[in-house]
Design a binder for these strands. Sequence first.
DNA 1: GCATGGCCTTGACCAAAGTCAAAACACCAT
DNA 2: ATGGTGTTTTGACTTTGGTCAAGGCCATGC
Lengths: 231, 231
Amino acid sequence: MSSCDTCVVRNRAICAGLEDREIATLSAMGRRRTVAAGEPLIWEDDDSLLVANVIDGVLKLTTSTEDGREQIVGVAYPSDFIGRPFGQTSKASVVALTDAKVCVFSRSDFDRYAREHPELEHKLLERTLAELDRTRSWMMLLGRKTAPEKIASFLIEMSERLTETGCAPTLGPARRFSLPFSRQQVADVLGLTIETVSRQFTKLKNDGIVELPSRREVEIINRGALVSLAG
Amino acid sequence: MSSCDTCVVRNRAICAGLEDREIATLSAMGRRRTVAAGEPLIWEDDDSLLVANVIDGVLKLTTSTEDGREQIVGVAYPSDFIGRPFGQTSKASVVALTDAKVCVFSRSDFDRYAREHPELEHKLLERTLAELDRTRSWMMLLGRKTAPEKIASFLIEMSERLTETGCAPTLGPARRFSLPFSRQQVADVLGLTIETVSRQFTKLKNDGIVELPSRREVEIINRGALVSLAG
DNA sequence: GCATGGCCTTGACCAAAGTCAAAACACCAT
DNA sequence: ATGGTGTTTTGACTTTGGTCAAGGCCATGC
């Protein structure tokens, strides 16, 4: 019996729908790993040696300039696929934001396996296309939205992405949630400075649109106002 | 004999490497179309009815806010694939920047065909992964670079992408080229205003880093300086 | 309880880029 | 050549968000 049998993302990750025999082969290739919050899994511009499925936790994908400016270019949640298959180098670093569990594969093993299993490649393609759509709408935010619009869009997206995605029928967006990001990381997602993020959070609180019970907790009081601020 | 036999992107587009019989089927499904400069091919948020290969010309992918702000989220050159397979709606508009020739397919026909031809899906996956990498490095530019850095990065990328990609062994980046963008469109790529773009172009000219023989022509005089400005 | 260190918030000031308006230029058709 | 149109450039001014610096908050360890 492979660990896949008890995997919580078994029905949502790209392995979903594979036959038992295929799962067994894949399972033999991969291994589980934990990544502590703050710990890196993949380095920007390094050889692409690993790919992985996220089982639990949240990780950030980042690119940096030489002088240390950082931009978060993606966020990976449970069941998401990370790493760069079919490519020599990884163009983004992957670092855990919370303690995380992942199922890692050697990239070359995975590439070989994927090429022999069109169904798996198809799932990966669907996921990659969806991620590209999401990334492009993030470009709109970075290039054309103001700081208040960025913060409002961010909180709306967080409330949608952080709802527990168990087996239960889809719940609506979360009214209250705990951000997996520090203020600096929110700034790195939105292309702002930490001070601007802080001021905008304070403004939303003073306007009665959100409550901020603690540094990481957010409660949305007036979702309509937030949506209309998001533009 | 199908029109694919004489297609100039036959060896570079996703159709490359298909067998003659497969090409014949694909050819029967698709048809050539010309798109005049400025004319749209796909609308944002519309049902995704078409996908296409670019044969000749340059097209922009854009997203817009309700109040009319526009962000160019991608640019498609000959041999690139456009449209959103395996999805209900297209999240970006596609508009020709120059007169263009494309080879269009009904999305549902294409989806069906692709699912039966893993080699084609694999090519599409490789392309989508590469596009995602490019898009993410564009996010870095939008979120964290200054106007001078954006303009310099843009000109470097243009000089690399606009080299004639015929059958000849890869030439280096173009020293002189004709932009397929108006000033406003450059602004829409970089998340700037037209005035800022214009001022930065003028500054590069005054500093002797580029020549601007006409509105669309650019000649890079001091590539080293441009690269270091790009950061 | 109190000191320590890491975040986060706030305030005063500044600079980069945006806005508005006018002039210059290029391109086109006549 | 000439006039008309739309694009680009330039200038003056404003605004947004960044920078720098100080202070507050909270968790942790002594």
